[in-house]
């Protein structure tokens, strides 16, 4: 089977166009990544809610895990991490518990309709100067299967998804980084 010269040229040209487009996309992704924020997850504030300390810690740890999964941030720092000090493009995630309904795994298994564990938190992304750049009230619950602590995993996943879907302002480039 002989291939026409024109066809071969067309195929080659198409391949080159696709390759070029792919490289441009890669470059764009890289440049966006360079301008990304880092985030520091602050300790969860139970507020006036009588929250089991295990839930507070589980929310914090699950937030660390889920935020890292989003690839939205350059780095995810823990509360009090000295490596985060002095970073210019740093946001602080503050989480305050607004509502907590303790559930029961046994009640869920026996009745199906009752015994759900529900959590509702107010999450804020703040700049180091204290300016709120993103704010949402997010809930998480476990209704049928799973332990009560699973509500914290669902909540953290919802917070991370909510951040992923929203647009954050571009971080201000410090004068030293812009070359001035």
């Amino acid at each position: 089977m002989r291939v026409d010269k024109n066809t071969a040229a067309a195929v080659l040209a198409t391949a080159l166009v696709f390759l070029g487009a792919y490289e441009t996309q890669l470059f764009a992704q890289q440049s966006v990544r360079n301008e990304q924020w880092s985030v520091q997850v602050d300790n969860v504030e139970p507020g006036d809610v009588n929250l089991d300390p295990a839930f507070r810690v589980a929310i914090y740890e699950n937030l660390m895990e889920e935020l890292a999964k989003t690839n939205r941030f350059n780095q995810v720092f823990r509360s009090g991490d000295r490596n985060a000090v002095g970073r210019s493009a740093l946001l602080i995630l503050k989480t305050a518990v607004e509502n907590y309904t303790p559930g029961s795994e046994t009640r869920r298994a026996v009745t199906t309709v009752s015994g759900a564990t529900k959590l509702k938190v107010r999450s804020q992304l703040c700049s180091p100067q204290g300016q709120v750049v993103w704010e949402r009230t997010v809930g998480g619950d476990v209704r049928f299967f799973g332990s009560n602590l699973r509500a914290t995993h669902n909540l953290a996943r919802n917070v991370a998804n909510s951040i992923k879907q929203s647009s954050l302002p571009q971080p201000a480039i410090p004068p030293s980084a812009s070359g001035n």
Partner: peptide, 12 residues
């Protein structure tokens, strides 16, 4: 507990 960098961890 705290890690060597001062970061807060929680274990259950």
């Amino acid at each position: 507990y705290l890690d060597p960098n001062g970061g807060l961890h929680g274990a259950i």
